[in-house]
Design a binder for these strands. Structure first.
Lengths: 223, 223
DNA sequence: CGTGATTTTGAGTAGCATCAAGGCCTGTGG
DNA sequence: CCACAGGCCTTGATGCTACTCAAAATCACG
């Protein structure tokens, strides 16, 4: 499932020029679908998300895609085990990022302590991945969708009375590839949650969490 | 499933004294089932595995256990997003570890560059978690078992002609909790692989990989 | 040798993937 | 402005995988 279709590949209009010498710490804009880095690229920088949402994915040898995670404002993306990236990263929507030099992680730079933030980002990512694995290991499709919606509610949602709302500017395929489900199951679970009055969906991409707390509980899986 | 039974809790005979002031970089021994750290503990150190195997796990609120990963010789364990551990870690068998001071990750210590190794360990862990997630997301039970066996073959196996053998000193529950399967399914897949002459099992805990390469291929899942 | 834990095997079932249409939004051209 | 085409999303029917419940077999230990 989810083999790479030509349609899927239309994506990358602009790749960020990695030769940007000045180590600007000013945020700069990227448009939707921009590719921040790809699997195999030299890791020339880490990216701190200022606004927007990024999708981090990897491909299996068979061409199957897996969405490892998402990058939200405040997150730092681009950690690889060595000097090379091991995943692809592109913007789900228009976004702003700050580029940090990565060699503080790998090199001998004496200014490492100035960049404690970057190390911390790596540790946070470890935690995020652990959470993700726990979810994949044991939860039902419904619980996973609830977890996904809770995540986005927390990270990019805006309060609306006791509700939370947000725009999800990505196809259902991304959700499926992130949760390890098929798009059909994603769709089915969403309508199920809608019928249970836990969420409302307008325009296919605009979500309202009607009972955020209840969703959180579902996301826990058991407990 | 896998609720904590009293039997499960017999485990922790000795907890490592975290007040060991001298920052010895000499390896020291721990016996089987020793607890290196627990969820919520202050992160006083990182542990470099010299020999043996460690199990890193987390509990859900409902008391369900999830095995996040394993620590093999060469691995560095104990990364948390902040100054506290977020997982439990205990020795599967007797083992040796080196303790590293963790404050180089969190504090302002100027000697951070001396400890580039530790940062690198965190990045490797990110990669390991990504691999694990990909496996959990998309593979069948059989493929997961193959991946598990391949992992242990690579990390603690000894060559035996064209075979690879190793002792797996952990209950089936650990495998199940790591792969997101039930113990019954683990058992079934193992006998299936045995009947297909991909592995041989003696004494329940001694494994021989008869076709390591074939197992690797299965582990890839697709592709 | 007996007891309790772990592992294996079996039968039945629930949940999700797969295959296959059908509906909805978007953009394009007449 | 309307008709049409191509994605994307949703819904339906079916089958398979792995979980659950249950019991037998093996192992560990006293």
């Amino acid at each position: 499932m989810n083999m790479l279709s030509p349609a899927r590949l239309k994506a990358h209009p602009v790749s960020i020029a990695p030769s940007d010498k000045k180590r600007t710490l000013l945020p700069y804009c990227v448009q939707a679908e921009t590719n921040l880095f790809r699997d195999g690229d030299i890791c020339s920088g880490l990216f701190e998300v200022v606004s927007g949402v990024f999708r981090i994915s990897r491909l299996t040898r068979g061409g199957r895609r897996y969405v490892i995670g998402f990058g939200f404002p405040g997150d730092i993306l681009g950690y690889g085990p060595d000097r090379f990236h091991i995943s692809d990263c592109d913007a789900v929507s228009a976004a702003k990022v700050i580029r940090h030099r990565a060699d503080v992680l790998y090199g001998d730079s004496a200014q490492l302590q100035r960049h404690q933030t970057l190390v911390k980002g790596a540790l946070q990512q470890v935690e995020a991945m652990q959470d993700h694995c726990m979810m994949l290991g044991r939860n039902t499709a419904r619980d996973r969708i609830a977890a996904f919606l809770s995540l986005f509610g927390e990270r990019i949602g805006t309060p609306l009375g006791r509700y939370v709302e947000f725009d999800l500017l990505m196809p259902r395929t991304d959700i499926a590839d992130y949760l390890g489900l098929s798009t059909e199951t994603v769709s089915r679970c969403l309508t199920e949650l809608r019928h249970d009055n836990l969420i409302a969906i307008e325009n296919v991409h605009h979500f309202v969490l009607l009972q955020p707390q209840h969703l959180e509980e579902l996301a826990e899986g058991d407990g």
